[in-house]
Write a protein that binds this DNA or RNA. Structure first.
Lengths: 357, 357
DNA sequence: ATGAAAGCGCTAACAT
DNA sequence: ATGTTAGCGCTTTCAT
């Protein structure tokens, strides 16, 4: 169907079935011309201030705007005001399949919920390339976002030094940075896990770590060792394996772990996806969960409570963390005051993947 | 251990140590001044064209840019070029907790993967307000995005008529629109489900529909009726209930369904989350799945294969659909040619929630 | 080859 | 009260 358009200015319709002609959009200049008033009056009328405009004129402006199908160009406005009402979200790295990880999903959910309340939109950056880090930083500073949320940046990332002083930003998880950070109490959470395992009789405890280039991976590993030490338990190095925070990593590490002559009776996994992978490895090795092996995860991802056996886990409130990070960065943009960091409590959720020995 | 928690960010300590002064960013003008050349030369040097610049000068420009910590302002560039290299993603409505729905997650994953390859970023719009639809359309047209992907728009949404001819866009799921659409073959998928149920002996089949304001909800309901008719089976109206595509909706509808004196032996749910809700309702009513009730879902969400019993479902390749939509809209932006719609095949995945009667 | 200048659409300071 | 105009930082045409 051909929709004819009687808009302002040049409308060029080369209408070959599916060839779409984008119309020249009306601007405040067009409105001003039409009413024989100045652009500033139009601007003030449209924005309802800060300069007062007689109601009569204002109404006329609105009417003509409507008639001309006027749409304010926020790009032009941003160039002047230096505000885009957009917050950028920067994933760890442009990991493929980012959006299927529970960590990202949980944070993004909180971020979006809060963005809506705060009347902001959310720009998700892709294209991270460690070899062209400077270009990536350029992208982050190109004016599209007023502030940034860096999701669990890699420990070796230099981006933040370059970002410092250039744009308000906060980070999730990583508390090593000289920036406001939002995450859970990793060491407290890991202690909850190990305390529980010890309490139900486990003495031989292994760990499938996360990606150790990310602070959560490091922190949980360090906390794991501390927790064992606290209970005067030895850390058996062959029972401590690096995973990837992904199911595959948990599976691969799990196969290595379970093929050893002597096995732990319980394994703390750096997150639930790793735990899922370990469950699969256990299944393939004929190791029963939880009778032969207790498994505990981290995150309380939706799937952790759905699987059979349901995974005992350390819950962290990802959506609250995302929401807090979003509120904070918007505050930061508006006040230019760096917000306080926030650390959230974890909770032990005992389910079916762990049992007394 | 002491866990610090600083509550919601209502108040700010004015901590001078944390007061950040954003530096005035360098512009091409600064570079030009410094080298006593014109801004156009700087621009051409930086962009490596289209006008040739002697290598010697180019290097000087790059050196000064580096020295001044120059960051190109894409907002300014966009104002001229009318390209932001950003694609907007428009959720059905600014549903709270959007990011936890498998449909959104699956599509977004494909969208982000493809955005990275195509060197675009993704802007997620929030703030949909049906009562201020015009303002919302303004936002979509404010210049930040070159093109839009509308995720399963509500049937009654007027936004697309307003968007037509103003910006390249594609939609997911909804094939009623005068726009390129990307989705799965709903009627084929539903037929697979019903054919299978009939094949294993079911004759009394109910349906928990999705949100009927969304095309997938409508289409699957219509397809359900057709499929029953094809098999000369009656559609029992009290066994057809509206859900919401959410677990809660499936649960609520399920409770209503299961409390009826006569029950179906099998239920086709509009998506997996609904099916999950129905499973819970069945559990609470003492109805065994699949012995007393067969349940089949739609989507093949990650959780559908993880739960016990694993949900038999009709799989649709959400990430492929998202990827296709992303490719298409970028192509649309670049060529101004409306891309072709694509409909993806579904697949029947037989799992543990269905059994022969 | 390279500089000057005209915008892109808007806001807001400056004039009247 | 309202109009004029100078930018915001950039691209690109037009002049030289």
């Amino acid at each position: 169907m051909f929709i004819s358009y009687f808009g302002p200015l040049t409308s060029f319709s080369v209408n070959l079935a599916h060839t779409v002609s984008l119309q020249m959009a009306a601007t405040i200049k067009d409105i001003a011309k039409r009413l024989n008033i100045s652009v500033s009056t139009v601007s003030y009328a449209l924005n309802n201030g800060p300069r007062p405009v007689p109601e009569e004129i204002r109404e006329k402006v609105l009417a003509v705007a409507r008639e001309l199908n006027y749409r304010p160009n926020r790009i032009a406005r941003s160039l002047v005001t230096r505000r885009s009402h957009t917050i950028g979200v920067v994933p760890t790295e442009a990991s493929i399949n980012l959006a299927v990880t529970p960590y990202f999903q949980g944070l993004l959910n909180g971020i979006l919920n809060t963005a809506e309340i705060l009347e902001h939109d959310v720009l998700i950056y892709t294209r991270y390339d460690a070899e062209r880090a400077n270009e990536f930083v350029n992208t982050l500073l190109d004016g599209r976002a007023d502030g940034l949320i860096l999701l669990a940046p890699r420990i070796d990332s230099q981006a933040m030094e370059q970002l410092a002083g250039q744009i308000p930003f906060v980070v999730t998880s990583d508390e090593r940075r000289n920036a406001a950070h939002f995450g859970c109490d990793n060491s407290g959470g890991v202690r909850q896990a190990i305390d529980y395992l010890v309490q139900i009789g486990h003495r031989k405890i292994g760990h499938i770590a996360g990606d150790l280039r990310i602070s959560d991976g490091q922190d949980r590993l360090v906390a794991f060792r501390s927790a064992l030490a606290y209970h005067l338990l030895p850390a058996v190095e062959s029972w401590i394996l690096e995973g990837s925070f992904l199911c595959e990593g948990g599976y691969t590490a799990g196969m290595k772990l379970l093929k050893q002559p002597e096995r732990p009776t319980a394994v703390f996994c750096a997150n639930d996806d790793s735990a899922l992978g370990l469950v699969r490895a256990a299944w393939e090795c004929g190791v029963r969960v939880p009778q032969d092996l207790s498994i505990i995860g981290f995150d309380n991802s939706p799937i952790s409570s759905a699987v059979a056996p349901a995974i005992t886990t350390i819950g962290q409130p990802l959506d609250q963390i995302g929401a807090a990070a979003m509120s904070a960065v918007v505050q930061y943009v508006e006040t230019q005051q760096r917000p306080e960091s926030q650390t959230f409590h974890t909770e032990l959720l005992i389910r079916a993947s762990t049992a007394p020995i």
